[in-house]
Design a protein around this nucleic acid. Structure first.
Length: 157
DNA sequence: GCCAACGTTGGC
DNA sequence: GCCAACGTTGGC
């Protein structure tokens, strides 16, 4: 039997890379994560077929803008090897990469963003990592939480 | 633009 | 191994 799929939330500043960019590109590699907790989730836990909430941080308002699916499991984040990249890290090298990433593909662009203030008002979403560790850019989400967000996205404003 | 919360670095 | 200093994230 196949392993149950898992659910995640990944943050991006829409000025840097938005759900609309992903809709245009179809897939992208999630480079630039330089936080160990977030890296460990990508390197060790994320599997092909896992579902992702695509979150716009630093937006007005911030919130979940759509969904994506993991389509390639972890491999070294090559932007860390590129001296010209702003994500360059001299401590990472090809023999012993420090940073990893996954690829995701677009699933759905929500008709409306499920905003952070809205999420804060939903009782069943109070335990989301998003509300309790605001700085983690790749984080696990419970299936129930994922489903509630999807339902909110379908609801008329 | 401010600043709180948090993670990382490096001296000791 | 502690912790102060510093840098970054991200909401407001």
């Amino acid at each position: 039997m196949a392993k149950a799929i898992q659910y995640w939330l990944m943050k991006s500043e829409p000025d840097a890379y938005s759900i609309h960019d992903l809709a245009k590109d179809k897939t992208t590699h999630w480079d630039g994560v330089r936080n160990y907790q977030a890296r460990n989730f990508m390197r060790d836990e994320m599997k092909i077929g896992d579902r992702v909430l695509f979150y716009h941080s630093n937006d007005k308002p911030p919130g979940v803008a759509g969904t994506a699916t993991v389509c390639k499991e972890s491999y070294p984040d090559f932007s860390a090897f590129d001296k010209k990249s702003k994500y360059f890290d001299a401590k990472s090298n090809k023999d012993k990469p420090r940073w990893f990433m996954v690829d995701i593909k677009i699933d759905e662009v929500f008709d409306r963003v499920v905003s952070l203030p809205e999420i804060k008002e939903v009782v069943s979403l109070q335990d989301m990592v998003l509300l309790n560790n605001s700085r983690l850019s790749v984080q696990p989400v419970k299936k129930k939480e994922f489903d509630v967000i999807l339902k909110l996205a379908k609801k008329k404003a």
